[in-house]
Simulated scan of single mutants.
Amino acid sequence: MRADTPLKAIACFDAVMRTGSVTVAAQQLFVTPGAVGQQIRKLEAWLGTPLFVRTVRKLQPTAQALSYWQQVRPALQQLDSASLAVQGKGDLQVRLSLPPAFASSWFARRMPQLTRRYPQLQLHLSASTDRVDFSQGTVDLAVRHFDGQAKDVQARLLLADEMRVYCSAEYRERQQLRTLADLPGATVLYTTSHAHWSQWLASVGLSFDGLARGLQFDQSEMAIDAARRSQGLVLTSPWLVEDDVEQGRLVQVFDAVLATGKGYYLVQARDIALSEAAQRFEQWLVEAARCAASGLNG
């Protein structure tokens, strides 16, 4: 490495590229936005080329910036990994991203098993449905709900998904829900994340005609909670209501099950090797999913 290589400036450049914001980069680096801007200008002078097109609202990276970042990013990741290894932290950390509803239900239910098996594991959880950019080095593994078709990442099926109808026992008795013929008059709880009511109704030979009013929710957790509180029928994944069914807060109302063609997939980068800790966690997660699927289908 050249003696005049501006490592601090390169670190600031990396932070801006990862976050897309000088302000956020400054917060992560615990410096002021002005200090980050100064380091970016220093790096541009050292490289002899502009790295960003400056507008009123944001910085737009140039083609040279994108090319340079692609080349220096692996070296920065390797430097970070080497430092963690020397500090004794590299083999313990796993960074995981999960959908919020899945994180607070299926995964939370099994976390005690994980911590008992790997008490030294340092797990960093992020609840999000956003697309993961593994090149930023902020996530090792992610679970996503989709059809498994992905060209830019490796995707391994954990749990095939399906839709079932649930409500509280109190609501079922109040509405006298015994057969599908009793469905008209019940309140339907709609969710944008699991918008499968029309498909489920069609699968049992029914439609929305004759159904009572419905309530709309943009998050599965809210619709499920409304069902717990006897507000209506929720159509959702059995993986999100395991505890509720086991503890009697929710009951499955009808036998009809709708296969969605989607599932919960474990995704990871194709070109970034997992750490030993991440590999152990991956094995545990696959095993836990296999046991869960066996229990549901058994």
Rank of each mutant, 00 (worst) to 15 (best):
F30G: 11
Q216A: 11
Y265R: 02
A101M: 14
L211K: 00
C167Y: 02
V31W: 10
A259I: 13
V251H: 08
V165W: 00
V56E: 14
E221I: 14
D130T: 05
G90W: 00
P184G: 08
L206W: 05
A278Y: 01
Y68R: 11
S97F: 08
E287P: 03
Q268N: 05
L76V: 11
V241E: 05
D218C: 08
Y265H: 10
L125Q: 06
Q216W: 14
P50L: 13
Q39P: 02
S220W: 07
R57L: 13
V53E: 12
M163H: 05
T260M: 11
R178W: 05
G148M: 04
D147Y: 06
L121N: 03
Q27N: 15
A293E: 09
S105H: 04
A195W: 10
A85V: 12
M163L: 11
F107L: 10
V94F: 01
V241L: 07
V53I: 11
G88H: 06
S203L: 04
D271A: 08
G261I: 05
V165A: 02
A292W: 03
Y264V: 02
L121V: 11
Y265G: 00
L43H: 05
F52V: 01
E221D: 14
R164C: 04
Q268E: 10
W46N: 03
L125N: 02
F107C: 03
L240R: 00
S168W: 00
F52A: 00
